[in-house]
């Protein structure tokens, strides 16, 4: 308990000190996980819509894969992405291994099934005739999707929270494909691991608390949007 209180104190002191290294790591964490969440949304929402509304061969198989993917172990994802991007791997020529882009890619793979899965559920909860209604009222394809997204916004916000929450807190994939390089790929979770392994537990705890606070603020904003949007 004393450790925790001490860590909290140190976390506050760290934040107050204005240590640029800390703020750079926080910014990088938000940037990598934010970019991965946005990309997962751009790909996952349309895919989730198709899986929820269209009937096609292999749909059930795809749904099964998505549901399995919602619980992917990050370290395993990291390993696969590492094999893809490693110098000797099929995408080695892109020279992406141990970069922030590699971390975004790995986190995208983790977040995508979550976004797809939540989207499928929220679209299925809408009345089946809603897209037809919007068509007959005169909404073209994009307007229709926009209106449907508005109707499903509670579920879609939950999707963002689930996806972002999963990747901002993961360490295995970021460590494997990012390499935890101090001035380029270190993020809050990998920094926690580093400080723990150095025996610097109070600092590790402080960083952990900052990570939690960051996740909390983002989720608070989303929750606020959700409660305003809901009834």
């Amino acid at each position: 308990m004393r450790d925790l209180v001490a860590a909290l104190g140190q976390a506050l002191r760290l934040l107050a000190s204005g240590d640029p290294a800390l703020y750079v790591i926080m910014g990088r964490t938000l940037l990598v996980s934010g970019a991965a969440t946005v990309l997962a949304l751009l790909a996952g929402v349309p895919l989730g819509y198709l899986l929820a509304r269209r009937r096609f061969p292999g749909r059930t198989l795809l749904l099964g894969l998505v549901n399995t993917g919602m619980g992917l172990p990050p370290v395993v994802v990291g390993l696969f992405v590492w094999l893809l991007l490693a110098r000797s791997g099929p995408l080695g020529a892109l020279d992406l291994i141990y970069t922030r882009q590699a971390m975004v890619l790995a986190q995208l793979v983790i977040a995508l099934p979550l976004i797809v899965g939540f989207t499928v559920t929220s679209i299925r909860a809408l009345p089946e005739r809603l897209p037809d209604l919007l068509w007959t009222l005169g909404a073209g394809r994009w307007r229709r999707l926009w209106l449907l997204a508005g109707e499903a916004r509670l579920g879609l916000l939950a999707a963002i929270m689930a996806g972002f929450g999963a990747i901002i807190s993961e360490v295995g994939a970021s460590m494997t494909v990012g390499g935890n390089l101090e001035h380029s790929t270190r993020v809050l979770t990998t920094a926690v691991v580093t400080e723990t392994s150095r025996g610097n537990v109070p600092l590790a705890l402080a960083l952990g608390l900052i990570l939690l606070a960051l996740a909390f603020v983002v989720n608070l904003v989303l929750t606020f949007a959700q409660t305003r949007g809901g009834r």
């Binding site: 009345p127 005739r129 809603l130 037809d132 209604l133 007959t136 005169g138 909404a139 109707e151």
Partner: peptide, 14 residues
């Protein structure tokens, strides 16, 4: 889209 007016059997609202 919007070529005719159509009231579905199931009254659906946004």
């Amino acid at each position: 889209a919007g070529g005719v007016a159509y009231a579905f059997q199931e009254a659906v609202f946004l």
